[in-house]
Design a protein around this nucleic acid. Structure first.
Lengths: 227, 227
DNA sequence: GGTCAGATACTCGATCCAAAGTATCACGTT
DNA sequence: AACGTGATACTTTGGATCGAGTATCTGACC
């Protein structure tokens, strides 16, 4: 019954836009883009229209009018309802106050790190560090440009500042990890090296050896290799 | 034709598991859970079986045997193919070396920050800071426990270390932001306050006033930031 | 005055995925 | 001996998602 229960932040973006004034979906999209919100909220038309439909079904927005210019497709203008205002407020408050578990791709990749030989891992991490650095330079330049060239108050850039900080932190961690592998300081390195010695040639991952150890089972336990 | 082209990291997890030895999907799931990989990779059965099906269709894994114990459902055991080994390697390398644009929920929320009154925003951010702090304490304890109680090498915890670092950085930013709002230091604060003065009562967001300003349009400008 | 890029406005269909469901077994409890 | 609980192993369902597609209009340029 409860369609799309607070999963896609694009729905929040729509609500907040309509809070400002009634719009048709396409106008919401262009507004979000103009304000660079499409950098923080995944925006594409398919999702937009489906999200709008579900908001209407839930009574959070309603049709205000249907226009048509020439023979272009109709524009359905929506306005927010009281329920919608409430939902927008509560949802935003929730997103701000409660950290949400997410699954960044790099975290997943790190969890499979032992599957690659240490040397290759270091090379790849170095590449990442370089890309992070250049990306950071670009982003920082973009921010400065907005603040200085036009006098855009920082209030409207907090999300970008946050993103920059997070990338800086990631870069820090990547560098530290590289250093600890290179210096042999990282616990488990010997094991890591040995399982990648026999087959330097073709097979990029070591077969037979576990790519990571079970984190449980301090004692040898007969878990279910049920054959 | 190319089904599910490197979107769901669960597929990589399956490949890496099967690199170790042939398994049936359910066993992959329990293995991942035992190794706490379900903290870094979103894991649920629906996705697991559909991902496995698509890997088979793409020739990256193949059926090794079909078992049955009693009247329980059949277990289809899969093994990885050479193509699968290659794909696993390349995919993992790509994830490690290239930062991927993602859309954290908190970044989205920050981009709508001006929609809430400053006081409420500060209160909510404070709540977040508290939750981040207690979460961090819990996580750090968990790590220490694994390292000390059982002698688990840090190599198998890099993804968790990364997650902790990221949260620390987030906490830093949240604290800094709170301070800058409280001290009146943040650019745009006056405007933020004024648009939230008339209606302290019911409407939690100010209608009529733009919740954030267009970032473009001082001069008609050629786009600028392409991602 | 023709054409061609780009904006306008939405639609479609093919995947993708999360959550719940199904059915069996295993084990301990009362 | 009936019951409950949790593990085993996979299926089903229907919504969510995304990229591409359609068709029109606008304006710039030569």
């Amino acid at each position: 019954m409860v369609a799309r229960r607070r999963n896609n932040p694009l729905a929040l973006a729509v609500l907040v836009c309509l809070y400002e004034r009634p719009m048709h979906p396409y106008e919401v999209a262009t507004t979000l883009r103009q304000r660079h919100k499409d950098e923080s909220v995944r925006l594409n038309y398919g999702s937009l229209y489906s999200v709008v439909g579900s908001l209407e079904k839930r009574g959070l927005i309603e049709t205000s009018e249907v226009e048509r210019a020439g023979r272009l497709p109709e524009r359905t203008v929506y306005r927010i309802t009281d329920a919608g205002r409430l939902e927008a407020h509560d949802w935003l408050a929730e997103l701000l106050a409660r950290p949400l578990k997410e699954y960044p791709a790099f975290e997943a990749a790190l969890s499979f790190l032992p599957a690659l030989p240490p040397d290759e891992a270091v090379a790849l991490l170095n590449e990442r560090a370089l890309e992070l650095e250049s990306g950071l330079a670009r982003d920082a330049y973009g921010l400065l440009e907005l603040v200085e060239r036009r006098g855009l108050p920082r209030l409207f850039l907090v999300e970008a500042e946050y993103a920059v900080k997070m990338r800086e932190a990631e870069l820090d961690y990547v560098k530290q990890l590289i250093a600890e592998i290179a210096s042999g300081e990282l616990g488990g390195l010997e094991w890591w090296r040995t399982i990648h010695t026999a087959d330097m040639a073709d097979p990029p991952l070591p077969s037979g050896a576990p790519w990571t150890q079970p984190l449980d089972q301090p004692v040898a336990q007969a878990k279910g290799s049920n054959a």
